[in-house]
Computed example of a mutant assay.
Amino acid sequence: MSIFRWVGVFLLVALISGCGGDSKFRTYNGPEVTRVIVMKNKREMYLMHGSKKLKSYDIGLGFAPVGDKWVEGDGRTPEGTYIIDRRNPNSRYHLSVGMNYPNVIDVAQAKALGQRPGGDIFIHGQGPYYKKGAPRDWTAGCIAVTDRQMEDIYAMVKDGTPITILP
């Protein structure tokens, strides 16, 4: 093979490998995240390994951030302990991981009020729908971080991880 062909093949490989850009899917090889803790009053979320804090994030909450979620559409972020049980790589908010809200207690509370508890509570990024200058608490009840932070969370937090959301 001539030198020109080798140069051409090298340039083609370099061009193709450069087309991918930054992937939103990251890898994580550190200690296992054994629990996620959300402190609503501080607007902070912690990724924990046992009692050691691995990462902390400033967060946004539902547009009505004070109090527990009782019914669908109330704009509140639920309080209690749940499990991360799904992930959405095609979320309209960049990436997201979902939790098993509502649980049996949440359903019973909403039913007692003659309402539905709602659902689809996620930790998610901002995505293209987040408006610059929007209030800090802008979601319908989810927990929001930046897209870049969500990439780390998506890589670090596995399905089955408990999440405790405190007032």
Rank of each mutant, 00 (worst) to 15 (best):
F4W: 03
F4E: 03
R5N: 02
R5H: 02
R5L: 02
V7T: 09
V7M: 11
G8E: 00
V9T: 08
F10A: 14
L11H: 03
L11W: 00
L11T: 05
L12V: 13
L12Q: 00
L12S: 08
L12K: 03
L12D: 01
L12W: 04
V13L: 15
A14L: 15
A14H: 03
L15Q: 05
I16C: 08
S17W: 11
G18R: 08
C19K: 06
G20T: 04
G20M: 02
G21V: 02
D22V: 06
D22E: 12
K24C: 02
F25A: 02
R26Q: 12
R26S: 04
N29F: 07
N29R: 12
N29H: 14
N29L: 05
G30D: 10
P31L: 11
P31D: 15
P31F: 04
E32M: 12
V33L: 13
V33A: 15
T34M: 13
R35P: 04
V36Y: 10
V38I: 15
V38C: 14
M39Q: 15
M39F: 11
K40Q: 13
N41A: 14
N41W: 06
K42G: 05
K42M: 14
E44G: 00
E44R: 15
E44F: 11
M45N: 07
L47T: 06
M48A: 15
M48H: 07
M48E: 09
H49P: 01
G50Q: 04
S51R: 15
K52H: 11
K53L: 03
K55H: 15
S56N: 14
I59G: 05
G60M: 08
G60P: 05
L61R: 05
G62H: 00
F63V: 03
A64V: 13
P65H: 02
V66H: 08
G67C: 05
G67P: 00
G67I: 01
D68E: 05
K69F: 00
K69H: 10
W70Q: 08
V71E: 13
V71C: 02
E72I: 01
G73N: 07
G73S: 01
D74H: 04
R76M: 12
T77C: 14
T77F: 14
G80V: 11
T81N: 09
Y82L: 07
I83N: 09
I83G: 04
I84G: 11
I84W: 10
